[in-house]
Simulated scan of single mutants.
Amino acid sequence: MKKKILLILSMCLIMLGLAGCGEDPTKVDYNGYTYEQLKGACENTVTVLQEMSESEKASYLASGDEMLEHLVGRWDEAVKGVGDFVKLGEFTVTKSGKTLTCEQEIIFKDRPVLLTYVYTYHNMQLEDITVDAVQTLGEKMTNAALNTLMGMGVVFAVLILISLIINSFKYLSRFEKKGIEEKAAPAAKAPVAALPPAVEEAIAAQDDLELAAVVAAAIAASTGTSTDEFVVRSIKRRF
């Protein structure tokens, strides 16, 4: 019995969910605005944009209203190369969280254009208006491929740059090691220049005279005589 009750309740919940999902958007109250009012606002905007003269366009662009200037500028860009106006297409209203989005399709000969109104739902304040040419599937795929290639190119460029930086570290360490070794190495002593033979002989003779004087003084001191009473003529070295 309990299983049957649970099954019935589950089916009721499923039916309520399906009923909510299948709600007719034209019958919904959008925070005080009806579907027809939102659609009329988009259609009136399309009519004004299509019928505006050059003087009116200049006036709109100089109005100081950023949203209006943006709308007129985007309209000029969107309708370039789309051909003649054919009719108004599908109108959709989408509520997502705190945002309500209204999209009006505008059919031209070569490609459609999409007018989008974005509202803040709780006060229905207009946040943005955009106009964009609808891209074909081929154009979307091309743009996606270009974005992918650009992203991959940036990634590879960064990886190559990082690799070069890492490889440069070994050269920096070599330069640092070389600088430390140069600071630690003692300065090489300059070689002593050899004296000429004549100078060496003169130094040796002077050394002999000094040695003879020292020997004479020692003899005089030991014998109690004067150095004038004898002469040291030669000295024989035994080493």
Rank of each mutant, 00 (worst) to 15 (best):
N44W: 08
T45P: 01
V46A: 08
V48D: 05
Q50S: 05
E51W: 03
E51H: 04
S53E: 01
E54S: 08
K57R: 12
A62C: 02
S63H: 04
S63P: 01
S63N: 06
L68G: 01
G73C: 00
E77Q: 12
A78S: 05
G81Q: 04
D84N: 11
F85H: 04
K87V: 04
G89R: 03
T92L: 09
S96M: 12
G97R: 08
T99M: 12
T101W: 01
I106P: 00
I106K: 03
I107G: 01
R111P: 05
L114V: 07
Y117Q: 12
Y117E: 13
Y121P: 00
H122F: 14
M124C: 13
L126M: 15
L126S: 10
E127F: 05
D128P: 05
I129H: 04
I129Q: 09
T130F: 06
V131Y: 06
V131E: 04
A133I: 08
A133D: 06
T136Y: 11
G138M: 12
M141R: 11
T142Q: 11
T142L: 10
M150P: 00
G151C: 07
G151W: 02
V154G: 08
V155Q: 12
A157D: 11
I160T: 14
I160C: 15
I162G: 13
S163A: 14
L164K: 13
I165K: 14
I166W: 13
I166N: 11
S168N: 14
